[in-house]
């Protein structure tokens, strides 16, 4: 035989790369044989616990919220509730009480999200370098991950409590003053979330290739321009992700309010969830259910954004 023994390697490899993509049909991950009915049965069996729990403790409660929002409960528990249609829902969601809750939650977001992100980035950037003992600083900066909202609130009692707090005489941190109380409380969230923000930003920074920064340095970018034009765009998915996490946790602020101010002074720190949970029991169930539906809509907007970002991240193989 007189065929050439030549078989260019690069051709073969290029080809093999194609083979896997071309010949792989969609939906290949499922098994094609075995008993299909049995497989489906197994799938339902595997999903059953999840679906039951979700049904009873997520979807049924949603239905109940609608029910409560469209009924007024008698003060006496033995009397049946009466159907009032959307009247109560409408009245609740336009009430001053709800608007003030919404405002407080919005302010809480405004106080915690930008400041939290900024501090987290500062901490991460300052430890993202080769220096002796940098591990110690990294451990310090991630330490607040170990504190819960409740612990952070107790910690902040030592700082801002009007009687025993270290900063009780600092006017802009006063819990007695309606204009500063919410901000003072929000600092506990900022502090508590520092660990999380720091860890996520640092992890993102570590994915930025050194060569890119070096190339930018050689191209003559100064440190500040290099940071804004190269580092920030490259870690922006992480910042976006964190932004959403912080927005959600601001929307759900409760423990810090209850522990630090109990909603006061004169309701100035009553966030939306505080009014819904209503620890002092001053609002009727139907009103709180209406507020809950308001919170549901807000959560849906944020969660929608979160999901679309998450699925994008997953796409990149994370």
């Amino acid at each position: 035989m007189n065929t050439s023994p030549l078989n260019p390697t690069e051709q073969a490899q290029g080809e093999s790369a194609q083979v896997t993509t071309v010949s792989a049909p969609a939906k290949a991950q499922t098994r094609r044989f075995g008993n299909k009915v049995r497989d489906a049965g197994l799938a339902y069996l595997f999903l059953l616990p999840a679906l039951i729990i979700f049904g009873v403790f997520a979807y049924y409660p949603l239905y109940r919220l609608f029910w409560y929002a469209t009924h007024t409960q008698s003060r006496f528990r033995n009397k049946p509730a009466s159907y009032v249609g959307l009247e109560q829902l409408k009245a609740s969601l336009t009430s001053n009480d709800f608007i003030s809750g919404l405002t407080h939650s919005g302010l809480y977001m405004l106080y915690t999200v930008p400041l939290g992100l900024l501090l987290g980035v500062m901490l991460a950037v300052s430890t993202h370098r080769r220096l002796k003992g940098i591990k110690v600083f990294q451990t310090i900066f991630s330490s607040t991950v170990a504190s819960s909202v409740a612990v952070a609130s107790v910690v902040f009692i030592t700082l801002v409590n009007p009687e025993i707090g270290y900063f009780k005489n600092v006017p802009w941190l006063s819990l007695r003053n309606p204009t500063s109380a919410l901000f003072a409380v929000s600092l506990s969230s900022v502090w508590q979330n520092l660990g999380l923000t720091f860890i996520v930003v640092l992890a993102a920074l570590q994915t930025v290739p050194d060569e890119l920064i070096e190339a930018a340095t050689l191209d003559g970018y100064g440190a500040i321009r290099r940071f804004w034009r190269i580092t920030v765009p490259l870690i922006s998915p992480a910042l976006l992700f964190l932004g959403i996490v912080l927005v959600v946790s601001a929307l759900q602020a409760f423990a810090q309010i209850e522990i630090l101010t109990g909603g006061g002074p004169s309701g100035a720190t009553e966030t939306l969830l505080f009014k819904i949970a209503d620890p002092r029991g001053i609002r009727p169930l139907g009103v709180r259910a209406s507020y809950s539906l308001g919170l549901f809509v807000l959560t849906a907007i944020v969660a929608g954004a979160q999901y679309s970002i998450m699925s994008k991240r997953v796409h990149y193989g994370d």
């Binding site: 999840a50 979700f54 997520a58 409660p61 919220l65 409560y68 759900q252 169930l285 709180r288 959560t299």
Partner: peptide, 21 residues
Amino acid sequence: VLVIGTLLLPIEVTLIANVEI
């Protein structure tokens, strides 16, 4: 979709109904 949907229903939203349940 039902699983994804629960992302919109954290305990904070369904709190009062779940307490009743």
